[in-house]
Computed example of a mutant assay.
Amino acid sequence: MGEAKRRRERMTPIQTEAENLTHKLADEGLLIKAGFVGYMAACFPTEQPSDMQRRELEQAFMAGALHLFSSIMVFLDGGEVPTARDLRRMGLIDTELREYGQILEGRAAMAAKTEGSA
Rank of each mutant, 00 (worst) to 15 (best):
L68D: 09
M62S: 03
A34Q: 08
R6V: 08
D86L: 09
I103H: 13
I14Q: 15
A4D: 12
L25G: 01
M90L: 15
T12Y: 03
A41V: 04
Q53E: 14
E47R: 08
Y39F: 09
P45K: 06
K24M: 11
N20E: 15
L68I: 13
K113T: 08
Q53P: 00
K33Q: 09
C43I: 00
M62W: 00
K113G: 06
A34E: 08
L57M: 11
Q53A: 10
K33W: 04
E28C: 07
A109C: 04
N20W: 06
E47N: 05
C43R: 09
F69K: 15
M1Y: 07
T95H: 13
F61Q: 03
M62Q: 03
A18V: 12
L57K: 03
F75M: 12
G91Q: 06
F69I: 15
I14T: 13
G2L: 12
K113D: 13
E96F: 11
D51Y: 03
E9N: 14
A60G: 00
G79T: 03
M40Y: 00
G101L: 10
P49L: 01
F69C: 09
F61D: 00
L31R: 04
A111I: 12
G64Y: 06
A65T: 02
A4G: 03
I103Q: 13
P45H: 06
I93N: 02
T22I: 07
K5N: 15
G106V: 06
L21Y: 07
T46F: 06
